Amino acid sequence: MIAKKLLFFLLALGLLTTVDSLAQNGDQGVAQAVEKLRKLMIDPDKAGLEAIASDRLSYGHSSGKIEDKAAFVEALTSGASDFKSIELTDQTITVVDNTALVRHKLTGETIDKGNTGQVKIGVLLVWVKQKNDWKLLARQAVKVQ
């Protein structure tokens, strides 16, 4: 009887460790995708942006403007949206099945028609796992103080 209880305990412990490990790996994969997006927004690459964004992307700006995937990629690669630096803070990641919610604060330096500016926004990103890659499905930004 003691052997059965010990075996059950060890199996349960192993299962919990595996579930925790999978959750952490999911968080790490999402964090890596967020960092890749941050770098692509500073140094845009059309192929990279198209690869990281879902074909059904809905990209909301703090101004209320909403872009689809094509407009999002065009704005960054054309320089219409030009980030010189981006810093992300207070990031949280919640993974549920094949969907991840990421919230963070974004501060950065922009250049708009030759004029430098500062941006400080709160961001919600929605990522979906397609095959083995995290794809950005939605983004909404709001102005913060």
Rank of each mutant, 00 (worst) to 15 (best):
R56H: 14
S85P: 00
E50P: 04
L137A: 12
T17L: 14
Q91D: 02
K84I: 05
Q32I: 09
A33D: 02
T17H: 09
I2K: 10
V102P: 03
A33K: 02
A75N: 14
K143L: 13
R38F: 04
N132E: 15
L7Y: 08
A51S: 11
Q32G: 10
L37E: 07
R38K: 14
T94S: 11
K143Q: 13
Q130S: 15
N98F: 02
A80G: 06
V34D: 08
L76C: 06
I121L: 12
E109F: 00
A100L: 04
I2G: 15
T116Y: 07
L101I: 13
L88W: 01
L11C: 11
G122Y: 07
I52Y: 01
Y59P: 01
V19Y: 06
S54A: 10
V142M: 09
F9T: 12
K46A: 13
E67F: 08
L40D: 03
A100E: 05
S58Y: 01
I86S: 00
S58M: 09
E67R: 08
L106M: 14
G108Y: 02
H61V: 05
G60K: 04
K135A: 03
L15F: 13
D112N: 14
K4E: 12
D27T: 15
A23V: 08
V119M: 06
W134Y: 04
T89Y: 01
R103P: 00
L57Y: 05
D20A: 15
R139K: 15
M1L: 11
V19F: 08
A51V: 03
K5L: 14
V142W: 08
V34H: 01
D82I: 01
L15K: 01
F8N: 13
A70P: 05
L15V: 13
